[in-house]
């Protein structure tokens, strides 16, 4: 155990208590950069959270501003301030259970923040009326954790679904787009297969194809590497990079796999305990002095993060 190096509140005060203070004290952790909050006292839980956002030189496509979200008594996002740059592959990395998937659901408006705001391309997602939110969602492609393919349709129909739903394209045009995307992800001849006949990796690739058919401006990946072997993970990462080079757009990848981060990321945000520890261009973060960032990005057992 690494008790000595951990910053656990020795008084045994639960996270909830110190949180009350944090929630009100947003000014200590401004959206972009700014001085790190004073450590100690109720803030000791966040002593490594400098919240520093190293400049990328690119405007942010997606911004989280002081977002709080609880599920029952589980306070997942605790004043999250995060910016994800336009046109780059950003990675949100952090230990399990720190609210990474919850972030994605906030971006597409499947969850609403209890407090704070989520801004995508200048529009506040939580305050959009339903009709506009549906329009907005056409700009998104989302790859869910297990692909989230529709079990009642074969792969071809799954990939064609967004086109049939949102465009007036003829079946020939749809077939052209779908086949191109399916070939791109290496599933050119699997169109007739049903999702339950596929391996996890194939389901993910099919989900990826489906998320791309509408040529989205923003593509979100929820743990594309979970449940895949290292080789498949590497191949999927290559694929993400290739597709990004070809199509451009803002890609947001959620992962806790450092190898994937090294391969793909142009921008990294390290999330822990519902807040950003540090964020910035990938190369700079890998050289960070922050003990938590260093521990997590090198995958060491010694450091601020323990088994809790």
């Amino acid at each position: 155990m690494t008790v000595a190096t951990r910053e656990h509140d020795p008084s045994g005060a639960g996270g909830e208590q110190s949180l009350g203070g944090d929630g009100r004290d947003l000014s200590a952790n401004p959206p972009h950069g700014g001085p790190p909050p004073a450590g100690g006292g109720g803030e000791s839980e966040f002593e490594f959270h400098t919240g520093a956002n190293r400049p990328t030189g690119v405007p942010d496509a997606i911004e989280f501003i002081g977002v709080h979200k609880s599920f029952g008594s589980n306070h997942v996002l605790r004043g999250l301030n995060m910016g994800l740059p336009e046109g780059q592959i950003s990675m949100i990395i952090g230990p399990s259970g720190t609210g990474k998937s919850v972030c994605i659901k906030h971006i597409v408006g499947l969850l609403y923040p209890d407090e704070g705001d989520v801004i995508v391309q200048g529009q506040s997602i939580p305050s959009l009326p339903d009709a506009e939110l549906f329009e907005m969602r056409k700009k998104f492609g989302v790859l869910f954790q297990d692909g989230a393919l529709f079990g009642s349709m074969n792969l071809y129909d799954n990939v064609a679904f967004p086109l049939r739903q949102h465009t007036e394209k003829s079946e020939e045009e749809i077939a052209e787009v779908v086949n191109r995307r399916m070939r791109e992800v290496g599933l050119g001849d699997a169109g007739e297969k049903m999702p339950n006949e596929l391996s996890g990796g194939m389901r993910k690739r099919a989900g990826f194809a489906r998320s791309l058919v509408l040529d989205p401006e923003i593509v979100l990946f929820d743990e594309p590497d979970s449940g895949l072997d290292p080789v498949r993970t590497a191949l999927l990462c290559e694929l993400i990079k290739e597709v990004h080079e070809e199509n451009g757009g803002t890609y947001v990848v959620i992962t806790h796999d450092i190898m994937s981060a090294r391969r793909v990321a142009e921008h990294i945000s390290v999330l822990w305990r519902g807040r950003i520890v540090e964020s910035g261009p990938a190369a700079e973060l890998f050289d960070s002095e922050n003990p938590f960032v260093r521990q997590f990005l090198s995958g060491e057992s010694q450091g601020p993060l323990g088994m809790e």
Partner: peptide, 17 residues
Amino acid sequence: GARKIREELDALQVLGV
């Protein structure tokens, strides 16, 4: 319930359904 767990319902909503 199974569709919800497999995130199919979320996918539907994101796809505008």
